[in-house]
Design a protein around this nucleic acid. Structure first.
Lengths: 335, 335
DNA sequence: TTGTATGCGTTATCAA
DNA sequence: TTGATAACGCATACAA
């Protein structure tokens, strides 16, 4: 079917060994021979079989991208796409092919991790969207295939991760509000089981402290990252402290819910209550008011995950990568 | 490194042939032998190498998912993710692994299509996000690898596509507005080079005709699927016919732009002007008012693309698949 | 019912 | 500078 190295050898009147070496740039080939072989290969539109090559070299030049549909990170859905692109871009840039495998816990279709790795001889795996308590993770940590986790703060022998400095992100949000003159700032957090929630809570506290504002417990509400919970939480917060003038939400989706409810309650945003979200979703810019948000560099998550991977494949044991958040101003905090 | 069929054979005290056949369910194996082999393989956590198997069987059990970042479909960005999931889900269900390869025209990193197919011995390819006039496409149509196109209405020997019935979709939108009592209905279309634009224009015309409403040229404006153009178009349309009471937009993003501009102009939605969008983006539900939209079954696009592919791989030459749109009511058309 | 031998397309070892 | 030859892990035609 497809043309092989053997065909090229025949055409060029040399052995397959010579062709292989000519194509792979070995020095011990007479220049004219090489030229001839190169020309013939190009004319024949020959491309070496990655499969045969993988078999003999025991290196597949392929990495896996495994996505286990996330649930508890909330709004994670929106994160995925750009991360995928980042992984793809960097993998391609480094000459790796990408094997995508999105599992779905709900549909009971998790692929045995190890099996995929073995079957396709993956050299490494980027894993994302997994809950910290997913049994899946154990399989991964125990395996010997290098693994880069996205937004899952775990390390092991051949496993590390890339995530955001969530503490810093939350702090940025609070600082921004403080600069705008706010002193009574609420927090609508995600549920406390999520790692990021604890981090963002910490950042919120630090932000207040730096501004000399004592943290008040009734300023903090816990949602589930989704829209409806944002609405409920803001209502509760206002009931607890009607003089609240600003709120930081641990997800853009909750911020949207909060803003909608504020409007229903007759409050203006940002005049009566300013709102900051988290994630940097595109859709925040489509809204009126547009939402000030802490932007996660999603594409870079993917890029750095691959970078970590190749370093691990090279035998290194790199430190986790903690990316820096940025604040993007919208209308929801004045401006 | 990884355990092979040879190891199993040794452990079981049989030949590799026997192991191979036992594992692959051939009938000519003594039941007890098979049991023993199966047990040993399971205990050893053995998984056959897809690579070696591909080489000998000349079938890779892998299909490619090639995405060339689209531009002219507009809001296509939002379409991609669910389609990817659909492709992934169905490929996995049918036992195929997925090789993802997103190219990016802007970054000049298109991978030669043929090369990827040859390198990885892909059995078929799903292609999406390509402009109809992309030279890339020619390469594809000429190639012998089966190819399923998403939203690109082209067929060739081993190439067909899946798309939406855009005429019907536009018609649904108009019918919905007519039912709500509207008689002066504008159209904010995408640019005319896009295939879908022509289809939606046609559906718009048919919808009006069925309602006995003569089409008026000043009711039609052409945007570029993006937000800003939606805003400009609605302003132009209202200038041309101030009595317009409804508008159908060929993308949700343009609908959002139109609604924002309408508000700025002091018009209420839907009381003064009702708006229908197109695509069924999730974010339309986060807005106030939420946007009535024509929903594209994005996940099914992916599923059906894979289905087409396997049929082509089996030697069939299936007809294109035209999926049906659905109207999802939001607040932007009353209710 | 099982084993031997061969080949898939490529690279690597060793001789020539 | 080049060419046999073996090997990678597996499936299969043919023999036993």
């Amino acid at each position: 079917m497809s043309i092989t190295i053997k065909d090229i050898a025949k055409q060029a009147g040399v052995s397959v060994t010579t062709v292989s070496r000519a194509l792979n740039g070995y020095p011990d080939i007479k220049p004219e021979t090489r030229q001839r072989i190169l020309r013939i290969a190009a004319e024949a539109n020959y491309h070496p079989s990655a499969i045969a090559r993988s078999l003999v070299m025991k290196k597949s030049r392929a990495i896996g991208l495994i996505i286990s549909e996330l649930t508890d990170l909330g709004s994670g859905y929106h994160m995925l796409f750009d991360v995928i692109r980042g992984v793809n871009d960097q993998a391609m840039a480094l000459g790796y092919d990408l094997i995508l495998s999105a599992t779905d816990p709900e549909q009971q279709r998790e692929i045995p991790y190890i099996e995929l790795c073995q079957r396709r001889q993956l050299e490494g795996v980027v894993l994302m969207g997994v809950r910290t308590d997913d049994p899946y993770l154990k399989e991964v940590l125990d395996a010997s295939v290098p693994c880069a986790l996205v937004d899952i703060p775990l390390t092991a022998d051949s496993c590390t991760y890339v995530t955001l400095d969530n503490v810093q992100g939350a702090k940025l949000a609070v600082q921004h509000l403080v600069e705008r003159g706010h002193r009574r700032i609420g927090l609508i957090n995600g549920h406390n089981q999520a790692f990021v929630s604890r981090e963002r809570w910490k950042g919120y506290g630090e932000g207040l402290k730096e501004a000399g504002i004592p943290l008040r417990e009734e300023w903090v509400a816990y949602g589930d990252f989704e829209q409806e919970s944002g609405a409920e939480c803001i209502e509760n917060l206002l009931a607890a402290d009607p003089e609240l003038t600003a709120v930081f939400c641990a997800s853009d989706i909750m911020a949207i819910g909060a803003i909608q409810r504020l409007k229903q309650l007759g409050k203006r945003v940002p005049e009566d209550v300013a709102v900051v979200g988290f994630d940097g979703l595109e859709l925040t810019q489509f809204l009126t008011p547009s939402v000030t948000t802490i932007v996660q560099p999603r594409h870079r998550f993917g890029v750095e995950a691959v970078n970590l991977l190749v370093r691990m494949m090279a035998g290194e044991t790199p430190e986790p990568i903690i990316l820096n958040p940025e604040l993007r101003e919208g209308q929801s905090t004045g401006k």
